[in-house]
């Protein structure tokens, strides 16, 4: 297996209120089959052996599904591959390369420490309306609702969002439209989601605005970095649903 020697410039920041800055480290002897986070693990072991505290970064599943890992790598959320940082492998880098590693940057995602950010605004948007009311135990037989395969597939495509926040970090305006559009499209496409459709759409969009996310001005950077391949069409769907809901609200 090939090994790489790299220079990494990592954002270090002690806590939310401290000032941060880039610190340069040598990452030596990194196997090319290691993942990006394993490269950081190796570096952290070396740092701690020298008495320096480890670089803090969020991660959990390391399979590209929990959405916990983040990182901007050379300015790109999740770096130069189509997946999450935890599924990025070192064979994408060249020996001797310098890599810049920073936290996801967005007004609505304050840095907590080093590479960790606070994405709880996403949870609050979901709490505002990202659900279908279905009291436990009151459901009818699952096959009583027929859902055409195309609708089911469309809902699934949107539901695949892992909530990582890369879309927000990639957007020059820090907009969360792809994230909110994904949830709205998932639930608004299904027959079960119709009764609360308008209310859900308005509540999520208003919460999104209140949390300090920016507007969408059609840069489309979000789609390019999304590790779950959420399509841009969810944004146009959200826009349509929002207009309809707002009209119906003003009529009432």
């Amino acid at each position: 297996m090939k090994h790489l020697n790299l220079k990494v410039k990592v954002w270090r920041q002690k806590n939310a209120s401290a000032e941060g800055g880039l610190v340069e480290y040598e990452a030596r002897n990194i196997p090319e089959d290691a993942s990006f986070l394993e490269m950081l693990d190796i570096l952290n072991e070396q740092l701690q052996e020298k008495g320096e505290p480890a670089i803090a970064f969020d991660h959990d599943c390391r399979e590209g599904i929990c959405g916990m890992c983040s990182l901007s790598i050379n300015g790109i959320p999740h770096g130069p591959s189509a997946t999450t940082t935890c599924q990025l492998y070192m064979r994408h880098f060249k020996d001797g390369e310098t890599i810049f590693i920073e936290p996801f940057r967005a007004r609505a995602f304050p840095v907590l420490r080093d590479l960790m950010v606070d994405r709880s605004a996403f949870d609050r948007i979901q709490q505002a309306g990202g659900y279908i009311t279905a009291r436990t135990g009151s459901a009818q037989d699952a096959n009583a609702i027929l859902i055409p395969k195309p609708a089911a597939d469309k809902a699934m495509e949107a539901a695949a969002c892992i909530g990582c926040g890369a879309c927000v970090a990639a957007c020059p305006n820090g907009s969360a439209m792809l994230f909110v559009g994904a949830k709205a499209t998932h639930l608004n496409t299904l027959p079960q989601g119709q009764p609360e459709r308008n209310q859900r759409t308005l509540a999520m969009v208003r919460k999104m605005d209140a949390e300090g996310f920016g507007n969408c001005s059609n840069h489309y950077e979000c789609e390019a970095v999304c590790p779950a391949n959420i399509p841009l069409t969810v944004i146009s769907q959200l826009n349509r649903d929002f207009v309809k809901a707002a009209v119906s609200e003003s009529v009432q």
């Binding site: 436990t136 055409p148 079960q192």
Partner: peptide
């Protein structure tokens, strides 16, 4: 039943 009611998008056949 519960999960479908919540909107979990399980795989479907063409007939729905």
């Amino acid at each position: 039943d519960q999960c479908v009611a919540q909107g979990v998008p399980f795989a479907r056949e063409y007939g729905g």
